[in-house]
Simulated scan of single mutants.
Amino acid sequence: MRLHDRVFLLLGGSGGIGKALIAPLVGAGARVIVASRHPECLEHQEGVSPVYLDLAAADLDQQLARLNEAYPDIDGVIHCAGQNRFASLGKMPVAELDAQLMVNLRSALLVARHFAPRFEKAGQGALVFVGSTFGSIGFPGYTAYCASKFGLRGFTESLRRELADTPVQVVYVAPRATATAMNPEAVNQLNQALGNTMDPPEKVASEILRAMETDQRRRFLGWPERLFVVINGILPRVVDKAMLKQLPVIRRFLDSRALS
């Protein structure tokens, strides 16, 4: 996939991994349309157009239609928006469950539903989705997040196969733990206690661009996380036992007051 002279709609570009994607995309010669609920707060940059889009809104499909009318030259979408909450399921407010499903999964389906037919008709187009290692490995305290990311992985796999005889590219990239502002301090402390490596957003962004440029259909980031994904797929009981040993440490941070 070439990046030069492309027009990408970037979802989740106001922070974290999405924000780290903007400069290299523009540097590669792409134009970036950054969608946000607060476009007025985005920094002004050459080659970047901020637009309003609420991924959790009931009328997202209508918002996408209006966006398409305003920017008919969009030929690629990068969906790296996401919400999570580290909390036991019983303490998770229903509103936060809904938000994670709406933003992490429903919005991805609606974005693809809107743009895939248009890209197919145009003869080119790319749909890039940023998932998570937790889209392949269930982790205590992230039940809703894992559910949405498992769903995203399954969706991109089926969509890729559905569009296999078309020119539309479907790319799925799954980062491991990433050091973003979305993580509360308790999660940072948990990763440190478990010895989990946290990648900077800039490193993850570079891996996403590499997957796009080399036309990789799926890319899992981090070692040994990639190995754990494979083991969990074929021998899940091995991972069950490993998680059980970690559970006392996880519970210590899961039930901490910092998360209340």
Score class of each variant (00 low, 15 high):
19 K>S: 01
244 L>Q: 15
146 C>K: 09
41 C>V: 08
224 P>I: 05
65 A>F: 07
13 G>S: 03
233 G>N: 10
255 D>Y: 14
256 S>F: 07
119 F>G: 02
191 N>Y: 10
93 P>A: 04
13 G>T: 01
15 G>D: 12
25 L>Y: 03
213 E>I: 00
130 V>F: 04
121 K>M: 13
100 Q>Y: 07
168 V>H: 12
207 E>F: 04
133 T>W: 10
230 V>Q: 05
238 V>F: 11
148 S>C: 11
223 W>H: 09
120 E>R: 13
64 L>K: 10
253 F>T: 04
60 L>K: 10
251 R>C: 09
152 L>Q: 04
62 Q>R: 14
246 Q>W: 12
161 R>N: 15
112 A>P: 03
106 R>W: 02
128 V>A: 03
133 T>A: 14
96 E>D: 11
44 H>F: 05
181 A>F: 06
25 L>W: 08
23 A>L: 02
237 R>L: 09
213 E>T: 05
100 Q>E: 14
105 L>G: 09
83 Q>G: 08
217 R>C: 06
168 V>W: 10
37 R>F: 08
50 P>F: 14
49 S>T: 15
167 P>Y: 10
145 Y>D: 14
205 A>L: 03
150 F>A: 05
30 A>W: 15
44 H>E: 13
16 G>S: 12
200 P>R: 02
211 A>H: 06
135 G>K: 02
235 L>P: 02
170 V>L: 10
227 L>T: 04
245 K>Y: 13
150 F>K: 07
177 A>F: 09
8 F>M: 09
60 L>E: 13
215 D>N: 15
45 Q>G: 07
238 V>Q: 08
139 F>R: 03
68 N>Y: 07
127 L>F: 08
14 S>G: 14
164 A>T: 07
171 V>M: 13
122 A>P: 01
101 L>S: 02
40 E>Q: 13
32 V>F: 05
53 L>D: 01
123 G>E: 05
68 N>I: 01
8 F>D: 05
196 N>R: 12
64 L>M: 08
56 A>F: 15
248 P>L: 15
3 L>N: 00
191 N>K: 06
90 G>T: 00
1 M>N: 13
46 E>L: 02
163 L>S: 14
240 D>P: 08
246 Q>A: 15
185 E>A: 15
79 H>A: 02
186 A>K: 08
120 E>N: 07
176 R>Y: 01
11 L>S: 06
73 D>I: 04
177 A>L: 13
130 V>K: 02
91 K>L: 03
119 F>K: 04
201 P>L: 03
112 A>F: 09
79 H>L: 01
167 P>T: 04
136 S>R: 09
149 K>E: 10
9 L>G: 04
18 G>D: 00
101 L>C: 09
68 N>G: 07
229 V>A: 10
20 A>W: 00
231 I>S: 07
195 G>Q: 11
213 E>Y: 00
76 G>M: 12
100 Q>L: 09
246 Q>P: 04
246 Q>K: 15
124 Q>L: 10
121 K>S: 14
228 F>K: 11
32 V>A: 07
115 F>H: 09
112 A>L: 08
158 S>F: 11
185 E>R: 13
4 H>C: 00
130 V>N: 04
132 S>I: 03
178 T>E: 04
111 V>F: 03
207 E>S: 10
67 L>D: 02
50 P>T: 12
87 A>K: 05
20 A>R: 00
74 I>A: 13
167 P>A: 06
44 H>Q: 13
65 A>S: 10
171 V>K: 08
61 D>H: 04
215 D>H: 14
